[in-house]
Amino acid sequence: MAQPISNRKALHEWQLYLFVLPSLLLVLVFAYYPALSAIYHSFFDWTGGDFKQFIRFENFTRALGDKTFWASFITLAILVVANVVKMIPSIFMAVLIHRLTSDRWQYWYRVLLVVPMIVPGLVTLFIWKFFYDPSLGLLNATLDATGIKTLLVALDTNVLQWNVFREGVPIAWLSEPLLIIPSLILWGFPWIGAVGVLIYLAGLQSIGTEVYEAADLDGASSWQKFVYIEFPLIMTQVRLSLILMIIGSLKDFGLQLLLLGDGGGAGGRGMVPGLWMYNRAFTAGEFGYACALGLILFVFILALTWVNNTYVRVEK
């Protein structure tokens, strides 16, 4: 895409560098310096103050044997896989809106998509917490009323043997280790990301009506249209969201911190690497160690992004 410029020509076009210079300077000073300082401090026993002790690779060797840290990667892996699946509703929603014949409705639905973005996250958090409340919450009330609870109890006693669904005992969604990950996954249902849908819609927009008409003539089913026409067109956008989602979920721990505290909740099942970093830095005051954990996490994110870039190819 980008126009290659040879070294010789670059001398003439040197002022092009000025376009990137301000961003670069800002990023170097305000983002790279703190980040490099974190890398530097990962070789120190450092509590965030001015006293530090050089300890070579001790933080890293300690991290290698840190059971909590490595266990948190399992939770993370499950959550990332779930997040990939949770991208589907947004794609579905985009296709659904796009296929509407009325342009007006398409427009108004786009408007409505933006509205939830304006609502502060704390409101959403409040509603979902209320949803999961064991004795007063909506989820348990629904399960009880619909009789799904009985089904779950039967499933538990006969198949799962988890001993988490019991007759007469409200389900403790966020204080039962085995239920923490499912609860975290269910969180945010139906998992519509407004930005995602809007970006997919932008991608879908380039399909002309004639393509659909041709497909209709061929007697293509909805599914076939999706697979052969729509999905290939939003592949760029899907890939973009996928990368951003993976990077985001590897670093993210806000939800776990708010819901389960910095210990990761019952059985430590909600512990993810980011949360463990936070715990070490701000609960235990081991900033140096937290920096080392961050560096290890960075390597993981780097590797995953590389895999993503290499294997999730876009055919243009």
Binding site: P134, L136, W173
Partner: peptide
């Protein structure tokens, strides 16, 4: 106490009390 009370936060507990639960 409420089953699963350990998932509830300080304000949830207070709410439970002032709501006469």
């Amino acid at each position: 106490m409420q089953p699963g009370f350990i998932q509830l936060q300080r304000d949830d507990g207070t709410l439970n009390f002032v709501q006469k639960h």
